[in-house]
């Protein structure tokens, strides 16, 4: 009898130990990863204090590479370090990422990032004018409206309004079938008007949200990272250069081959640039950004 119990007990003990070890590792891993991120972040802060912007950018890049999620503060610091180095393309990219709602920036980060982004954009404008390069501006006019329409809340609101309208209509019909009293019939007409309004809102909000999200997914926004990038008439370094685009320009990616992206500027100009010269702000490739591998004042590609 005791001989039967011993294997069972040892099996339970092994199972318990395994579970405990697994849970321990599970609890330990994020903290260890967080420590590594914080260490790199602290080294970047120390470099900032010493005025070593190059080292700060390197450390912040490391921290961002190790970070599994998003940090608006880290993106802001990285963008500011690049701005101090005169790398306005990467500065624009990281400052814009710091302002994205997904990163949940604090009010301080929003204020500081908007200020630095304004200065970076002004300097990029001057550099573009001097170099005779095209500067793609962020979306203006309907752009902010469409950006707001892309918000998840608008989508959910449209969805809820539609189903609410359906529920109200079904209830009204059911009561009508049951044969309501005179006041109930008067209420039914009010409900009918409400259903129409809700359906109209559902249609308008849903269409705007859907079209704007679809446009965002089909032509995702990106930032030109390098100082000046030659835009060609077809994918390939041997193809004819049609114009130059300034680093920090916001463009839309309208087509893509293996290593080249077809971009569209805000004024409608289109051309092909190497994929590596772009930083995608949203979509699947949003994190695929090449770090700074050369001096910011390197010649245009």
């Amino acid at each position: 009898m005791s001989g039967d119990r011993r294997p069972l007990a040892s099996r339970r003990l092994g199972l318990g130990l395994g579970l405990g070890l697994g849970l321990g590792l599970l609890c330990l891993c994020p903290s260890a990863r967080a420590d590594v991120v914080d260490d790199a972040f602290a080294r970047g802060n120390a470099a900032v204090a010493a005025g070593q912007w190059d080292e700060a950018a390197t450390q912040y890049e490391q921290a961002e590479a190790l970070l599994p999620g998003r940090s608006a503060l880290l993106s802001y610091n990285l963008g500011t370090a690049y701005a101090q180095l005169g790398d306005y393309g990467r500065a624009t990219f990281h400052l814009r990422r710091a302002l994205q709602s997904d990163a949940r920036p604090s009010a301080d980060v929003i204020d500081a990032a908007q200020r630095n982004l304004g200065i970076v954009q002004r300097r990029a404008e001057v550099a573009a004018t001097q170099a005779g390069a095209r500067l793609g501006q962020p979306d203006t006019g309907w752009g902010p409206v469409l950006a707001a329409a892309r918000g998840r809340a608008v989508g959910w609101l449209a969805l809820a309004l539609g189903w609410l309208a359906l529920a109200l209509w079904s209830t009204a019909r059911w009561r009508q079938r049951r044969g309501g009293s005179e006041p109930e019939r008067g209420g039914a007409s009010v409900v009918g008007s409400l259903v129409v309004v809700l359906l109209a809102l559902y249609g308008i909000l849903g269409a705007v949200h859907g079209l704007s999200v679809r446009a965002e997914q089909n032509t995702p926004p990106a930032i030109v990272l390098d100082a000046q990038v030659a835009v060609r008439d077809a994918p390939g370094a041997h193809r004819k250069q049609i114009f130059t685009v300034q680093g920090g320009s916001q463009v839309r990616i309208v087509d893509q081959t293996r290593d080249w992206c077809q971009i569209r500027l805000s004024d409608g100009l289109e051309g092909w640039v190497p994929e590596i010269a772009l930083g995608q702000l949203s979509g699947v490739g949003a994190r695929r950004v090449r770090g700074r591998t050369r001096a910011p004042d390197a010649p245009a590609s």
Binding site: F41, P68, S71, A83, A112, R115
Partner: peptide, 19 residues
């Protein structure tokens, strides 16, 4: 002049999980 707002340097960078 150096017009840029300085980096914010708390001990740890607040973050949100990966979506």
């Amino acid at each position: 002049g150096d017009l840029f707002a300085p980096p914010l340097t708390p001990a740890s960078a607040p973050r949100v999980g990966a979506s």
